[in-house]
Design a protein around this nucleic acid. Sequence first.
DNA 1: CATGAATGAGATTTCATTCAT
DNA 2: AATGAATGAAATCTCATTCAT
Lengths: 210, 210, 210, 210
Amino acid sequence: MPVKTKKPKKTRAQKRAKRTRKKLKKAALDVFSQKSFDATTVEDITEKADLGKGTLYQHFADKEEIVVTLVEEAVDHLIERIHLYDVPPETLEAMLEHLLNAHYQFSMDSKEEFLLLFQGKLLLKLQSDTLDELEEPYLRYLEEIELQVSKYLSPKINALKVRRLACAVAGFVFGFFSFAMIGMTSKEIDTSIKPLRRVFVKSLCTFLGR
Amino acid sequence: MPVKTKKPKKTRAQKRAKRTRKKLKKAALDVFSQKSFDATTVEDITEKADLGKGTLYQHFADKEEIVVTLVEEAVDHLIERIHLYDVPPETLEAMLEHLLNAHYQFSMDSKEEFLLLFQGKLLLKLQSDTLDELEEPYLRYLEEIELQVSKYLSPKINALKVRRLACAVAGFVFGFFSFAMIGMTSKEIDTSIKPLRRVFVKSLCTFLGR
Amino acid sequence: MPVKTKKPKKTRAQKRAKRTRKKLKKAALDVFSQKSFDATTVEDITEKADLGKGTLYQHFADKEEIVVTLVEEAVDHLIERIHLYDVPPETLEAMLEHLLNAHYQFSMDSKEEFLLLFQGKLLLKLQSDTLDELEEPYLRYLEEIELQVSKYLSPKINALKVRRLACAVAGFVFGFFSFAMIGMTSKEIDTSIKPLRRVFVKSLCTFLGR
Amino acid sequence: MPVKTKKPKKTRAQKRAKRTRKKLKKAALDVFSQKSFDATTVEDITEKADLGKGTLYQHFADKEEIVVTLVEEAVDHLIERIHLYDVPPETLEAMLEHLLNAHYQFSMDSKEEFLLLFQGKLLLKLQSDTLDELEEPYLRYLEEIELQVSKYLSPKINALKVRRLACAVAGFVFGFFSFAMIGMTSKEIDTSIKPLRRVFVKSLCTFLGR
DNA sequence: CATGAATGAGATTTCATTCAT
DNA sequence: AATGAATGAAATCTCATTCAT
């Protein structure tokens, strides 16, 4: 009875391919947390993955595609984390606190993905005046924040202001993260960062005009 | 008395060279605030400076040297700014507030230099475990912060803790900057950021054990 | 018994690479016998080898490495030739004659390699006062000559004198070669060069103090 | 009476120019005896001459011209030396001996010029089949040797054979020189090289068909 | 599918030469 | 006449991508 072996409808080859793809992504994420995208060569990645250089091109159209994939997945994971609450926050303040907390948790659990997302690239983009040049995943990320927040806002509010809010959250989070990274104990984090987060939330509320 | 006439030691050619060097640095700073170091080509810089490609190499050994020079000068400027106070702050809190304010002023006056310094590079370095791998200018910057702060600290304090403090300041400043960049009016900044800064300072004091 | 089938350790790709490497070396040797090392461009070589420019860099770290490789191999071949005698020469004179003859044979069989080795570079080096600056292959060559000759010499002989002997052989060989190159028939060579060689050997013996 | 000062019809500026030109040639000769022509940069020369880079172009059309000038002068000096005999040699043997001796003397007195002339370049050219590509000075040198020798030869002799003779002399001289360079005392030279020269002359005579 | 040798476009870098002073 | 800053053509070298096996 070959039932068992048939269960995974993927052939052996397909499974192998999937594993290879995963190895490549893992290796790329590792390398990108040490070198910039431009400074990273395809060989850096395939070597770390212990695979042939050509193999990367079996799974990704080009070097860019693997980063885009990684960024997309990282954004997915971050958004998942944002969606993760037991009880929906009731106030704007509570939602903003939740957002900051979700980012913080994400940065702790998926350090490499966090670094990839916020590695200057995002922030630089955020500061550029040409916001519409942002590619899809970053845009998706910002829109998710806007979506979450806008539930609590008057529909008449200036859309640009909401976009700025989202940028501020992203920017702050990176400083926040750096602060948290300095090796504090969880107790220190509790006593030091929590109030900081609360005040930041207050500032944001002020910015939104209460 | 030919003393006076000897004074201008620079020949015309040397002055021209100095001007060219300045043009190159200005152009490079401009470009680096738009593209990453790796993505920037030597031609991007010389074209922006309206100079021949070879000219860069008359003034800098290679592409790297111009960035290092720019980073060094930016650190110099930032440190100058840190030294700039009418009355020395009297307490640790006051000093920390001064530091954050100096960074903020610097980021406003020299946006490009600020971006260059904090463009991922520093923060990435800060997060790496090998803090002593920081090269000279970044190290100098951190040491300057440590120096300023340590005046107010017990000499017995753990050096590592002070280093972490400096890193936290640097990290926070970047988030701070991102926040400020979102296009707030100075009034908004006053009402939103000042309290934020104050709370951050409190957190730092707590971290330092009062 | 799969032992046999495992024997050819090289994969097809590796064999292809080896062939390419050989093509490159052949092409470089050809070009170097027409242009000087400095005047030769990487493209000269790869074009002659009918390969892409980048291919050279897959096989050699840089332009220098291919020359070094060629020199090393040429020295190897010359030394092999020096080792090639049916009966070991019995006297110093016989050995010196053998050495000169080996050089001559080498220059006839491997004209390009010979030219590469003696193309000014060696001789220029020989004339420099800093003999110990000779790099490895040339040094190895000189030492081989010294080794062969010293068997016939008193161990008390001044090492410097033996080194000079080796240099003299190398220098003479080049003039010798030039002389032979003028298009003499083998008969002419027999009648003209042989006595010349014999007298040179006598001179060397005199130099060594009998 | 300004007679004295008028005697050198050159103005001060012209004299200075002459001096500068001489300094440049001296410096170039020095450098060329250490680096190959291609490896030598214009700055190597002007720096050694302690002059500005542009100055070289006041005196020579381009980098090539300074080498050509040096080679021409060196050939002039060598030919002068060849012309230098008290009593014209009476036989072919005597003339060949004289020629070799003149080369040897030249190599001793003007080491740099000798090296420049024989630095592979000449010999490489000599060996190439395209003898007519030899530039003027080298050709002039060969013709001078041919001229000197042909006095003693039947006018019917094959011109190619005479050319080969000249090449053989040149080639031998370089080996000869290398041999002499090994630091022998003049006594050693007397006892070792003289007989060598004599035998070489004999070989040449044989080659010329008596 | 996986491979890695081969490729060439494009980057960095050098340096002979020009030219304004 | 001397200078050296500026230049850009041409060299070296890198690396993303292709492709035959």
